[in-house]
C-alpha cells in the first residue's frame, strides 16, 4: 500500500518509493538519504504535532509535514 510519509503515525515503518517536490528542498531530501529504497520509521512528532522525527539510514532526521508530504512510502499491508 502506498501513502505519504506525512500520514504516518508514530512507530510506523515503510520504504521510500518516490520523492516529489522541487529544487532545493528535493535535493536536500536526496542528500540526507531520503531516496527510493530507504527504510524510514517515524519516531516521534514535535510537541505541536509538527515537525516530525524519523529514523533513516541509521540516524535521526527531522522534517516538516509539508516536506514529508513529498515522500511517497510503500508500507506493508496488515
Amino acid at each position: 500500500m502506498k501513502k505519504t510519509l506525512e500520514t504516518f503515525s508514530v512507530g510506523e515503518r515503510g520504504v521510500v518509493s518516490s520523492v516529489g517536490g522541487e529544487g532545493k528542498m528535493r535535493r536536500r531530501l536526496f542528500d540526507m538519504g531520503v531516496t527510493p529504497g530507504a527504510e524510514i520509521m517515524l519516531r516521534k512528532k514535535a510537541p505541536l504535532g509538527d515537525p516530525v522525527e524519523v529514523s533513516i539510514r541509521g540516524y535521526e532526521l527531522t522534517l516538516r509535514k509539508t516536506e514529508a508530504a513529498c515522500v511517497l512510502m510503500e508500507v506493508a499491508n496488515d
Binding site: T4, G21, E22, A69
Partner: peptide
C-alpha cells in the same frame, strides 16, 4: 509547473 501534484498542493496549503 508542478512535479508531483499531491505534494505541491500540500505546500501551497501550508
Amino acid at each position: 509547473i508542478g512535479r508531483q501534484s499531491e505534494c505541491d498542493h500540500a505546500e501551497a496549503a501550508a
